[in-house]
Amino acid sequence: MFGIIALGIVNTVLMSVLYRKREFGLLQALGFTPRQTGGLIITEGLILTFVSGLIGITLGLFLTWFFFRDGLDFSFAWDEEWSFSGIAMDPVFVPLFRTTRVIQSLVFLFLIGVFASIYPAYRATRIDVAEAMKFER
């Protein structure tokens, strides 16, 4: 799951670097060091993951509260007596909220944001400024 998220972020950030090659070339022509350019991209990756993580968690909490606060009722499919391999299954599934889980997700997202931006940032530090600033008709 986290691997898929990381790939998505690498793709988004890398595309934005390649698409904005001229902009990063310009920043370096104006006096940005390659390291500052890389730092800018990692910061962008972090903001991207942090904001999308916050939106995702808020939306998730809201949807869970709104639809499932009374539990997900499967009593139409089985009754309270039903058991599977000796384990009794309650027909009402109740979502369990744990703050630690939310914090864990945010920390994971933060780490993914940093790691997924490293390669695009490295690519941006290797931009040939003269080539990036070439006038294209």
């Binding site: 001229r22 310009l26 370096q28 022509a29 104006l30 006096g31 940005f32 060091t33 390659p34 500052q36």
Partner: peptide, 20 residues
């Protein structure tokens, strides 16, 4: 590269055809 960037920042101004 770092020294070059510093020199561009402090001692050189660039103007490009496409304004940029």
């Amino acid at each position: 590269n770092r020294e070059l960037a510093r020199m561009r920042l402090e001692r050189i101004g660039f103007i490009f055809q496409a304004y940029n």
